[in-house]
Simulated assay, not measured.
Amino acid sequence: MQWTNITDLSQIDEIQKNKGYSLIFKHSTRCSVSMMAKRRFEMDWDALPEDTSLYFLDLISYRDISAQIAETFHVHHESPQILLIRDGECVLDASHGDISAEEAAQVINN
């Protein structure tokens, strides 16, 4: 699996219009907790179905995009944070130690 970097606001519209599941990982490059959560997530991401679209946001470099994601998907901003989007709606959001590829896979598979 591979991340698609979010670097443009127009990508939020693409994610919202995507049929199926997209997962956004909001990451702070200055935070050791965020780095640990990302590493743990990537170790387990094989649990996700292969057709899951994976998006990565460096929220330090793209604060405006991070704010737009929170507004678009009606979630409180956290860092680190994952948002699982299905048909334009956030069906799972988790932050810090609650970030789990296995939990995201469970939501997708049920």
Rank of each mutant, 00 (worst) to 15 (best):
D8T: 11
L9D: 08
S10H: 14
S10C: 06
S10D: 14
Q11Y: 06
Q11C: 04
D13S: 13
E14R: 07
I15A: 02
Q16V: 06
N18V: 05
Y21P: 07
Y21N: 11
Y21V: 08
S22K: 03
L23T: 06
I24A: 01
I24W: 01
I24P: 01
F25I: 06
K26S: 02
K26R: 06
H27G: 03
H27Y: 03
H27T: 07
H27R: 07
H27E: 10
H27C: 06
H27V: 10
S28I: 08
S28Q: 04
S28M: 06
S28D: 12
T29S: 14
R30D: 15
C31V: 07
C31F: 03
S32N: 10
S32V: 06
S32L: 03
S32W: 01
V33Y: 01
M35R: 15
M36P: 04
A37R: 00
A37S: 07
K38R: 15
K38L: 15
R40P: 02
F41N: 09
F41E: 11
E42K: 03
E42Q: 05
M43P: 03
D44V: 02
D44H: 05
W45R: 12
D46H: 05
D46R: 05
D46I: 07
A47D: 13
A47Q: 10
P49G: 04
D51P: 02
S53M: 14
L54F: 08
Y55R: 01
F56M: 09
L57Q: 02
L57P: 00
D58K: 06
L59V: 10
I60P: 01
S61M: 07
R63V: 08
D64Q: 12
D64V: 07
D64G: 10
D64R: 08
I65W: 01
I65T: 04
I65R: 00
S66E: 13
S66V: 11
S66Q: 12
A67W: 12
A67G: 09
A67Y: 14
A70M: 04
A70E: 08
E71S: 13
T72E: 01
V75T: 14
H76M: 10
H77V: 11
H77F: 10
E78S: 11
E78I: 11
S79Y: 03
S79C: 05
Q81I: 09
Q81N: 10
Q81A: 06
I82K: 00
I82W: 00
L83T: 01
L84A: 10
I85T: 05
I85D: 02
I85Q: 04
I85H: 02
D87R: 04
D87C: 05
D87E: 11
G88D: 13
G88Q: 13
C90K: 14
V91Q: 07
D93V: 09
D93T: 14
A94P: 07
A94F: 06
S95I: 04
G97L: 10
